[in-house]
């Protein structure tokens, strides 16, 4: 028996099992849309070629002081939603409020037209959960994002997942305290990093150290993400910062996947 023969069949089996698992877990199937980063290095890691529609994605700051960066990452992702469809943002977190209120001109600076944004501010976490689920189920906004501060138990997070799956739109949850969402399909941890400079020494883009800690049917990883001011596009930091990080990320990813 040639040694190469079993490996394709094993790959087939694994692929087959993956497909079954997808169906059993109720995960979005292949061919479903995804919110692409426009970066092959990242999109290749994600099963839908981006953040899957009909799923919950969690974004948390690495540290409380990184919250503005995590919020910026969230807005930059929302800006990538196609067409001029409305987007809804639920804000209830006191921690985020400590860093200020959304500012339209700054949001425009992240490439997101503030006119698309509907802001919903609630007094407590229960109302925020209700508003988030209602917004997802209404299928009015093209995407829903929520900054939820309180504890999110399994039942509440399952409700959100079911709502997102039924409505087939992405639900992005910003967790200012860093507590995890049990049903999240992807979990991102964002930390601020010194920005990129142009040849005049001016800041030409933000940089975030983005860690994909968990990803169903995908591979976790760690990247130094850049966000360009002028083009409003994601990019990967040049080899200067990348070499060690990318390597470290890959090994870490393998370790976790195994």
């Amino acid at each position: 028996m040639p040694p190469a023969a079993p490996s394709p069949s094993r790959a087939e089996i694994v692929a087959d099992l993956r497909r079954h698992l997808v169906r059993m877990e109720g995960m979005p199937a292949d061919g479903e849309d995804g919110l692409s980063f426009g970066l092959s290095a990242l999109d290749a890691r994600l099963p839908q070629g981006g953040l899957a529609f009909g799923a919950v994605h969690e974004i948390a700051p690495a540290n409380e002081a990184d919250l503005p960066s995590a919020f910026g990452f969230l807005l930059a992702l929302l800006a990538r939603m196609p067409e001029r469809s409305p987007l809804l943002l639920v804000l209830s977190s006191k921690k985020l409020a400590r860093f200020g209120r959304p500012h339209g001109h700054g949001i425009a600076g992240l490439g997101l037209d503030p006119a698309r944004l509907i802001l919903v501010e609630t007094a407590d976490e229960t109302e925020a959960l209700w508003a988030t689920e209602e917004a997802v189920r209404a299928r009015g906004p093209a995407a829903v994002a929520a900054a939820l501060g309180g504890r999110l138990d399994l039942k509440a997070s399952q409700r959100l997942l079911h709502a997102a799956r039924d409505a087939r739109l992405p639900l992005l949850l910003l967790r200012p305290g860093g507590e995890s969402v049990p049903t999240a399909t992807t979990r991102w941890r964002i930390a601020a990093a010194p920005g990129t400079r142009d040849r005049f020494g001016m800041l030409s883009g933000w940089r975030w150290q983005a860690t994909l800690q968990r990803c169903r049917n995908g591979r976790p990883g760690e990247w130094m993400l850049e966000f360009d001011h002028a083009t409003h596009r994601f990019g990967l930091a040049a080899a200067v910062a990348g070499a060690s990080l990318a390597g470290g990320g890959a090994t870490q990813a393998l370790g976790r996947a195994g």
Binding site: G100, R101, H103, H105, G106, G109, S204
Partner: peptide, 13 residues
């Protein structure tokens, strides 16, 4: 948005 006069997405009240 103007990159010469950046504005923050979060503004303190």
């Amino acid at each position: 948005a103007h990159s010469a006069c950046p504005r923050p997405p979060l503004l303190l009240p």
